[in-house]
Design a protein around this nucleic acid. Sequence first.
DNA 1: CATAAACTACACTACGCAGTGTAGATATTT
DNA 2: AAATATCTACACTGCGTAGTGTAGTTTATG
Lengths: 206, 206
Amino acid sequence: MPSLPTTSQRLTDRKRSAIIEAAIDEFRVAGYETTSMDRIAARAEVSKRTVYNHFPSKEVLFAEILHHLWEAIAGGEELAYRADRPLRDQLLELIAQKFRLLNDDAFVSLARVAIAAGIHSPERALDMVARMSEREEGLTVWIRAAAADGRLKTSDPVFASHQLQGLIKSFAFWPQITLAQPPLDTAAQKQVAESAVDMFLAYYAV
Amino acid sequence: MPSLPTTSQRLTDRKRSAIIEAAIDEFRVAGYETTSMDRIAARAEVSKRTVYNHFPSKEVLFAEILHHLWEAIAGGEELAYRADRPLRDQLLELIAQKFRLLNDDAFVSLARVAIAAGIHSPERALDMVARMSEREEGLTVWIRAAAADGRLKTSDPVFASHQLQGLIKSFAFWPQITLAQPPLDTAAQKQVAESAVDMFLAYYAV
DNA sequence: CATAAACTACACTACGCAGTGTAGATATTT
DNA sequence: AAATATCTACACTGCGTAGTGTAGTTTATG
């Protein structure tokens, strides 16, 4: 008669989860190269053989981690352009959505691991970036719509979107990725978001 | 009677240079972990023992590389604020100076190697970032002076400087570092610089 | 030319890591 | 309770790597 607590199902599933969790922790602090399967096994409190029973190789385990983190990322709901609302409010909402992503632990882990692993093998990173870009397309679509509606004066929505995101990421993404800085607190997020939006609109609003 | 060409001095100096050059190439494409001393020796066409006669360990060699690249970076001349000239022209000059750095091969190599190596050991990266920040202080100083002169309305020059740099780096730095993208061509540089400066001034100019 | 310094080839140690094989213990299912 | 799936400990292979020791060759210098 197994105890059968609600959080855990079959033993093999718990083991698998423990391995994935341990692998995320190890890969995220040590990178791909310097993380060893023995360390992952030890951290997961699992036999090394069990790791290999679940994942045939380090490569496969790593890919699984990336996939797992990607799935865990909070999905955005694609805010659509509204002609009847102020641009500022809509942009602030879009930015707030972006911050939810940037504050997501799974996202930061993924980005760190992916960038660290891919910085010297662009082909590996490229697929990641492609999918990240999809996620960033929402803002571009919004800007294009606002421009088509005659409320923004830009002929290059992709460029403009990239600019606005640069204003955010340089505070709330790159320092966290490259220097393991903590995420911005609420006040800082507010300042960064409002200042970015106001600067953006000061230049692009008709 | 040695040939004594002008480019090379004593044999030992040439060997040393060859090692450093080979090490830069290897570290830059493969990162710290995956680069081996044997490969460096082979690429430098030098005995492995010679490498160790010059550098006692891989760590020391790596530090030497970082130092070497740092020295090779084109030095900026610290453009000072001028009350008698348009803000836009001065800012464009500051940005142009920044682009000279961003287009510097030694700088990109250094940044790639340092970020790749330091992404999971912040203490190592911190000293780098500290020195990079010094190099970025010129812009902050300029903004502070312009604000003191009453021509910019900001109470936080560091923040504003960071914003302007975010507008540049998100096009001309991070893609090159993380995705090994080629540097921006002249036209793109012009667009990025002018658009950034105009947006910045649209918001901060009094 | 003789002496010292630097370079080379090569063998070697020590170590960590990816991955495998096996025999027995533990858990799950029927 | 029996049969089956899974986990564990552990020993082991094979490989790449950091770093050293040595004996002999090449290069510089007085």
